[in-house]
């Protein structure tokens, strides 16, 4: 599931990786995503757990700290590259929209 899935990041994947540019724990990720997107993107706890596990297995994030049951994570170089690649893809997509939009309106 994971490899195929990560060829294109879903919004939830994108924001999890974005939040993990700074070290934080799972619960904080849920709060931050909701705050950054002003509630537009919500990550359910089950989905968050599964995605964190998958990202870790894929080497996109690493566990940085364990305090009792609280686990903190941070993005890896591989994860950062994947996130940047996704940003480039989205930017190209936006540019295509703008350029095509101009042509269509001209």
């Amino acid at each position: 599931m994971a490899r195929e899935k990560f060829q294109t990041l879903t919004e939830q994947m994108f924001y999890i990786l974005l939040c993990l540019q700074r070290e934080c724990c799972g619960v904080d990720v849920m709060d931050q995503v909701s705050r950054i997107t002003e509630g537009r993107v919500i990550i359910g706890p089950g989905t968050l757990y599964s995605l964190l596990e998958s990202f870790q297995q894929e080497g996109f994030i690493q566990e940085t700290r364990v305090e009792g049951r609280k686990r903190s994570y941070q993005i890896t170089v591989k994860g950062r590259l994947r996130l940047e690649e996704e940003v480039r893809r989205l930017r190209r997509q936006t540019e295509d929209y703008v350029n095509f939009g101009k042509e269509a309106n001209a």
């Binding site: 899935k5 359910g44 089950g46 599964s50 995605l51």
Partner: peptide
């Protein structure tokens, strides 16, 4: 409440 699973692909896999 926020649904526990918000990604249907992840939910299906589980």
């Amino acid at each position: 409440p926020v649904p526990i699973e918000t990604d249907e692909a992840v939910k299906l896999a589980a």
